[in-house]
Computed example of a mutant assay.
Amino acid sequence: MSTPLVVVEDLRKTFVHMGRELHVLCGIDIVINQGEVVAFVGPSGAGKSTFLHCIGTLDVPTSGRIRLGNDELTGLSSARLAAIRNRTIGFVFQFHHLLPEFNALENVMMPGLIQGKTRREMEPLATALLAEVGLAARTTHRPGELSGGEQQRVALARALVLSPKLILADEPTGNLDTTTSGSIHELFFEVNRRHGTTIIVVTHNLGFAESMPRVVTMRDGRIESDRRKEEAERPLPAAEPATATA
């Protein structure tokens, strides 16, 4: 039996800009089970990133409920949300946000060091994860000495270092060329297979989305469709080639 990890009920988010209300999320209801890999797609402005930030506790919804595992997130203090976020969630963004003055190994260890864990505790974990993402020979290289794809692999290893139940990825290959993007896409699936980690990806890459077992389409702050691969009547359009370089 599937175990729900993320339960969202009537999630709404409204911003006020120059005296006008902007309704970015307009009543989202969804359940994502432990171990699922889910893509969120839709046009720019559909609310995908805002939704991701709300369930990742980086933003607070205007109303609605979010349950993450056994934790009811609604109404918690920022300190409590931060503790849940650090314990439960790993993030991978389009821009990897690696610390340039530290090498790959140190960047991967950083979440644990911030929590007060020792280098002796964190170094074996970080070393093993860098090997898992194909960077065993690049542990002492700083971000400026790595390609874009390698930097994103470091970011994924960093997201995994505290064994989160959930990884949230916002356009994780948006700055990469098509070939490099493909290798990163496969790495997400490998992480899911090895660790059972639930992965939610916001992407404009419809080819990547098509390869996922579940695709949620958002439009105008609402869920327009939610289909599992076996329910699909026809494939999504092919992905457009990326224009950025690795």
Rank of each mutant, 00 (worst) to 15 (best):
S2N: 00
T3Y: 12
E9K: 08
R12F: 11
V16W: 00
M18Q: 13
L22K: 01
Q34A: 15
V37Y: 11
V38N: 05
V38G: 04
V38H: 06
S49P: 02
L52P: 05
P61M: 10
S63T: 04
A82T: 13
R85W: 15
R85P: 10
L105A: 12
E106P: 13
V108E: 15
V108Y: 15
M109L: 09
G112Y: 12
T118Q: 00
L125I: 11
A126H: 08
L130D: 09
E132C: 00
E132T: 06
V133H: 03
G134K: 04
H141D: 08
G144C: 02
L146P: 11
Q151D: 12
A155M: 08
L156Y: 03
A157G: 11
S163I: 06
I167F: 08
A169Y: 15
D170T: 13
E171W: 15
L176D: 07
T179K: 15
G182V: 08
S183T: 06
E186V: 02
L187E: 08
F188Q: 07
V191D: 00
R193C: 04
H195F: 11
I199S: 04
V201D: 03
L206Q: 04
L206T: 13
G207K: 00
S211T: 04
P213L: 04
V215A: 05
V215K: 01
T217G: 05
M218C: 10
D226R: 07
D226L: 08
R228W: 11
E233V: 06
E233Y: 04
R234S: 13
E240K: 05
P241D: 05
A244M: 06
A246R: 08
